[in-house]
Amino acid sequence: MDDPFAILGLPRSADLGRADVDRAYFAALEAAHPDKVAGGDEAARRRAELAAARINEAYRALRTPVGRLETLCRLGGIDLDSSDPKRGAPMPDTAFLTEMIERREAIEAARRAGAGALEDLRDAVEDEADEAVAQARRALAGGDVAAAARALVRRRYLARLLDEIEEAMS
C-alpha cells in the first residue's frame, strides 16, 4: 500500500496540522495537475491524471487529524479498514460494545424526552470521541500502534453513534 506521507513529501508524524498538509498537497499538485498538460498528447494527459489521482488519494487520507492517525496505524501494521484478525481493526472489548448498544437505545428515549436531551447526549459522545483521538495520538507518540488502533476503533463506533444522534435531531 502506498505511503500517503511520502507521496506528499511529508514526514510520518501525528503532529502535522491541516496547513502543513495543504501546503504539501498544493505543491505536489502544482507539478502534476492535469491542467499543466492539457494541450499535450494522450499519454501525457493519462500520466498526469494518474499522478494527480494518487496525490488526491493521499490528500484524502491525510487531510483530517483522524485520517492522519489512521494512516500512521496502517503504516505501523494495523489497517482499520480490514477485518483481518492479525493486521486488521482490533475488536473492541465486550463492555464497550454492550455500552454502544445501550446508548443506541438511549437515542430513542432522548428523542422522546425532547431536543435538549439529544443535545446533551451528542455533546457527551463528541467529548468521548475527541478523547479517543487524543488517546490515539498519545499512544502513537509512545510507539504503541496497537493501543492507538484500539482507540481509533472506539472513535469509529462513537462517530457512527453521533451520525445517528444527529439524524434523530433533524
Binding site: 507539478a31 502534476a32 498538460v37 492539457a38 499535450g40 501525457a44 500520466r47 498526469a48 499522478a51 494518487r54
Partner: peptide, 11 residues
C-alpha cells in the same frame, strides 16, 4: 505510475 516530470510533457 510514471513520475510527471519523466520526460517534458509535450504541449
Amino acid at each position: 505510475i510514471e513520475e510527471p516530470d519523466a520526460g517534458a510533457p509535450k504541449r
